[in-house]
C-alpha cells in the first residue's frame, strides 16, 4: 500500500491510522497512531497512556501528507471521534468508511458524505432485511416498559463505547431524568464523553447501590455482565438489548432479552446503499460483514463491487 501505513490493523505496526476506538479496530502497541483527538483519548483510557509510541491528532477538515499520500478524516457518525479515512494519491481519492451510521446520534458528530473514486464500505448489516427503527420509537418502548413494570430493574446490555452513551443521551432527550446506573465497565468511558462536553445527566455506579435502589431503574451493563452477582441479586430483572440484530425475530429470541430494541450504531441497508451512490465512487470494496448482497447491489448499479477479502488473493500473482 502506498504511504507505508495501515488502517485499523489487527497486528502491531509502525504506522497506523485508526477510524474509531472499538477494540476490533483500535489495538494497543502500534509505533505511531494517527487518529482523531477523541479516538486517541478513548484509546488512552482503554489501554493506558503508553498504548502507542506516539499519537498524532488530526481533526476532520485538516490534512497531513504522508510519504506522498494526503490523509484526511471525515466524521463517520459511528461513535464519539469515529472518522472515515480519506486518502489522496496519484490523482485518486479513496475513502475507507470504517464503521459508520447516518441516523442521528446526540453523542457522535453526524456522518458526512466524502466523494471519492474508490469507496471501501463496511457491511455489517448488508442485507435488505436490515432496516433499523427510529431510535426515538425504540426508546419510547423502553419508557413504556418502565411504566408497565414499575418495580422491575431494566438491565440494558450495551457495549461500553458508543452504544451505552447513545442510549443514555437518547433517554435524556426523551425526558428521562432519573439517575441511570452504570456497571463499572461503563463508568470511565461515560466520564470521558462528559469531559468532551456531552451531557449524560445523573449517572451512578451500580456497585454502590442496594438492589432496592435499583427497583424501577435502568442499569447499563456490558452484554457479558448480566450473569454476574449483582444481576442475580436484582428483583425480577428485565433484560433489554439494543442492537441491529434485534431486527430478526429468531436472533431477538435467542438473545434472551425481554425487551429487544432495534438500535444500531451501524448503517442499515437503505443507508449503506444510499451512501455508496452518494459518494459517486465507481469502484466499491465491501468489507466487514455480509459482502454478497452489497457487491450484487453495486453490480446492478453499474459499479465495480468487490469483496475486500478476495482482492488480496487476486493480486497475489502480480
Amino acid at each position: 500500500m502506498p504511504g507505508d501505513f495501515y488502517i485499523d490493523p489487527h497486528r502491531k505496526v509502525d504506522r497506523a491510522v485508526i477510524t474509531h476506538g472499538h477494540a476490533d479496530h483500535a489495538r494497543a502497541g502500534h509505533g505511531h497512531v494517527l487518529t482523531s483527538p477523541e479516538t486517541a483519548a478513548i484509546m488512552r483510557v482503554r489501554y493506558g497512556k503508553n498504548c502507542a509510541g506516539t499519537f498524532q491528532n488530526l481533526s476532520p477538515g485538516a490534512w497531513v501528507d504522508h510519504f506522498g499520500v494526503r490523509v484526511g478524516l471525515v466524521p463517520a457518525g459511528h461513535v464519539l471521534g469515529s472518522c472515515q479515512i480519506v486518502l489522496e494519491f496519484g490523482g485518486w481519492r479513496v475513502v475507507a468508511s470504517g464503521d459508520y451510521k447516518r441516523a442521528s446520534d446526540p453523542t457522535s458528530t453526524d456522518f458526512e458524505v466524502a466523494p471519492c473514486d474508490v469507496f471501501i464500505t463496511e457491511a455489517t448489516f448488508g442485507l435488505p432485511v436490515f432496516v433499523h427503527e427510529r431510535s426515538e420509537d425504540e426508546i419510547a418502548k423502553l419508557m413504556a416498559s418502565l411504566q408497565t413494570f414499575p418495580t422491575r430493574t431494566h438491565v440494558m446490555a450495551a457495549y461500553s463505547l458508543g452504544k451505552a452513551q447513545r442510549l443514555i443521551a437518547e433517554l435524556r432527550a426523551a425526558g428521562y431524568d432519573a439517575p441511570i446506573y452504570l456497571h463499572t465497565a461503563h463508568q470511565r468511558l461515560c466520564q470521558l464523553y462528559q469531559d468532551f462536553g456531552i451531557d449524560l445527566g445523573p449517572l451512578l455506579g451500580v456497585e454502590k447501590a442496594a438492589s432496592t435502589d435499583l427497583s424501577g431503574h435502568i442499569v447499563l451493563a456490558p452484554p457479558s455482565a448480566s450473569r454476574e452477582g449483582w444481576a442475580g441479586a436484582l428483583n425480577e430483572p428485565l433484560n433489554c438489548a439494543a442492537s441491529g440484530w434485534m431486527r430478526i425475530r429468531k436472533r431477538a429470541q435467542q438473545s434472551g432479552a425481554e425487551l429487544p430494541l432495534v438500535i444500531s450504531d451501524h448503517a442499515d441497508w437503505p443507508d449503506l446503499t444510499r451512501t455508496i451512490l452518494d459518494t459517486g465512487a465507481e469502484e466499491v470494496w465491501v468489507t466487514h460483514g455480509r459482502e454478497d448482497a452489497l457487491v450484487y447491489f453495486c453490480q446492478t448499479q453499474g459499479l465495480r463491487g468487490r469483496a475486500l477479502a478476495l482482492i488480496g488473493r487476486e493480486e497475489e500473482p502480480e
Binding site: V131, I248, Y296, F297
Partner: peptide, 24 residues
C-alpha cells in the same frame, strides 16, 4: 417489488417468508 436475488439471499438468512417480506 423487490430484486429476486436480494430476496433469495434475505430469505436464506431469515428463514421465514412472512418475516422476510415484512422487512423487505
Amino acid at each position: 417489488r423487490a430484486d429476486g436475488a436480494l430476496l433469495a439471499m434475505s430469505l436464506d438468512y431469515v428463514g421465514d417468508l412472512a418475516e422476510t417480506v415484512s422487512l423487505l
